[in-house]
Design a binder for these strands. Structure first.
Length: 505
RNA sequence: GGCGGCGUAGCUCAGCCUGGUUAGAGCGCUCGGCUCAUAAUCGAGAGGUCGGUGGUUCAAGUCCACCCGCCGCUACCA
């Protein structure tokens, strides 16, 4: 399973919106690995184009210096969020340059590229094109209130129009190709209104990848950026790797769906490559709540949240409180509520109370069940259902799947109440029953650690350590390791609470 | 304007495609229990004219029409 995020444009510092996409991809990638599937997770940075060149000039840096700096920031943020990407592609890398040129050449050789004048209304101040209807009265630039110029240069065009029918046919034949269905409708509507050919080169720009057959032009940044998904896995220089990884599953924000669901597939058709398995577009992260409404999404850096919620708290919130397909609101209050209710109370406290009882009543060591005693089926069933719920990750149903996993913790808490170990512990004749109860609870924690590992790798690992289990919670396949059985006789070591409660100010 | 979507408990949402027991979940709230635990946990409960009107049907949150409110897409700003 080859999973990609968009490559992020380096004029933007990493913010919570980038983190949302990347955390989703990470949870998905970790899920597939946990399921035992070979998985390759790619993210990276998009580093060419006019805006970068301009930003570098403003900062008094060379473009390369600028992109080196910003791309490193992304690398560091993903490390701090425990993103498990297998590769990080930068479009200024040689492998991308080689691959992109090969890709362009393939389009050219297929007869899908031609030279034609690119005309438009151009504002010199903006250094940008406008459409007639976007201008103010009298043909003035809406930003600078200056007359725009009619501008024309020869560019290479990709015959996008040629692929309308085939794109529609593919989308019709593959209902899962564009997800969710409302976005699929938008894409179909867009194609139906007719596709124009796409300008894929720029003559007045140096910071980019030259057109292979005409080095006086560089590739239009969007077109070049899309190719990263192919060049990162060997296109044009390592066919064996490419064959092994392709095709990808693309995770994108709804704002860039069209590039991934129309332009990119058409390019792939022209290059003779298999289309992506799926292009999944998630909704926006809207900023609500008092503390954050004063600032914009762009200014919320993931670091601002890690101090209070921790990596796992942030990751859990992004996956549990938001629904992939629709927009969701992101608020400090919402995060605190969710953290306290699910992580501190339901889960963290469960871990703490169980380990505490094991230490108090059994000095940290509970004998393994012999198998002769009846296992309490309710707890075992709850674990089985939680394992089934996790499969929802494959359909991007993270919030529902997590709700399902949390039912196991609810069942374990209820089981504690029902069995009341603190009472049994006072009765020497019920020693065996106490062992059985505690063993079942430890086993529930062991299963839980496995199931949360795609979302909360840190907490999963800590819990695993506290349980003194060998190996790691994320060893595949979970469909076998997470089967509820007997917890081995180990001496647990209760650590600090996994999720200390956050007190409201 | 065209195309598409949404409006269900205080909050966030599921259910609607394939009409049919007392409309569900999580959080919040109220009451009760418990005391191993991070004032955590367990149980019970309150709370909804399912945006409005009309229609189809033995039966509509669920299908149809219209209306009101909100939102998305309608190409080259990563």
């Amino acid at each position: 399973m080859y999973i990609t995020t968009p490559i992020y444009y380096v004029t933007d510092a990493p913010h919570i919106g980038h983190a949302y996409t990347t955390v989703i991809g990470d949870a998905l990638a970790r899920f597939y690995r946990l399921a035992g599937q070979e998985t390759w997770y790619l993210t990276g940075t998009d580093e060419h184009g006019l805006k970068v060149a301009r930003a570098a000039a403003e900062a008094g840096l060379s473009p390369q210096e600028l992109v080196d700096d910003i791309s490193q920031r992304y690398v560091r943020v993903w490390e701090s969020l425990r993103i498990s990407n297998d590769d990080f592609i930068r479009t200024t890398e040689e492998r991308h340059r080689i691959g992109a040129k090969a890709f362009l050449q393939a389009l050219y050789d297929n007869g899908d590229v031609y030279l034609a004048p690119y005309e438009g209304l151009y504002c010199v101040s903006c250094e940008d094109y406008y459409k007639e209807e976007d201008l103010l009265e009298g043909g003035l630039c809406p930003i600078h209130h200056r007359p725009v110029e009619h501008f024309s240069e020869d560019n290479y065009f990709f015959r996008l129009s040629k692929y309308s029918e085939r794109l529609l046919a593919h989308i019709e034949a593959n209902p899962e190709f564009v997800y969710p269905s409302t976005r699929r409708n938008e894409v179909i509507g867009f194609i139906n209104q007719g596709l124009d050919d796409l300008s894929i080169s720029r003559a007045q720009l140096e910071w980019g990848i030259p057109i292979p057959w005409d080095e006086s032009q560089v590739t239009y940044v969007w077109v070049e950026a899309l190719m990263n998904y192919a060049t990162a896995v060997g296109y044009g220089y390592d066919q064996a790797q490419f064959d092994r990884r392709w095709p990808p599953t693309h995770l994108v924000g709804k704002d860039i769906l069209r590039f991934h669901a129309v332009i990119w597939p058409a390019m792939l058709m022209a290059a003779g490559l298999e289309l992506p398995r799926r292009v999944a577009a998630h909704g926006w992260l809207l900023v609500g709540g008092e503390k954050m409404s004063k600032t914009s999404l762009n200014q919320i850096a993931p670091d601002d949240l890690l101090g209070t919620f921790g990596v796992d708290g942030l990751r859990y919130h992004l996956l549990r409180d938001l629904s992939f397909a629709s927009d969701g609101s992101f608020s400090w209050e919402g995060m605190v509520e969710r953290y306290n209710a699910d992580l501190a109370n339901d889960f963290g406290n469960l871990v703490n109370r169980i380990l505490n009882m094991v230490e108090q009543y059994r000095d940290g060591t509970v004998p393994a069940r012999t198998g002769a005693e009846p296992v309490d089926v309710g707890l075992k069933n709850a674990a089985g259902e939680a394992v089934e719920a996790l499969a929802g990750f494959a359909d991007l149903g993270f919030n529902d799947a997590l709700l399902g996993v949390w039912r196991l913790f609810g069942a374990a808490n209820a089981y504690v109440e029902e069995t009341a170990p603190w009472k049994i512990a006072k009765d020497p004749e019920q020693g065996q029953r106490l062992d059985e109860v505690l063993n079942g609870l430890l086993e529930a924690l062991r299963v839980g650690a496995i199931l949360i590992s795609p979302v909360m790798p840190e907490a999963a690992a800590k819990l695993w350590d506290q349980l003194a289990l060998p190996g790691a919670p994320d060893e595949p396949p979970y469909t076998e390791t997470a089967v509820f059985g007997t917890f081995p006789e180990l001496t647990v070591n209760r650590g600090a609470p996994l999720f200390p409660r956050i007190e409201a100010e």
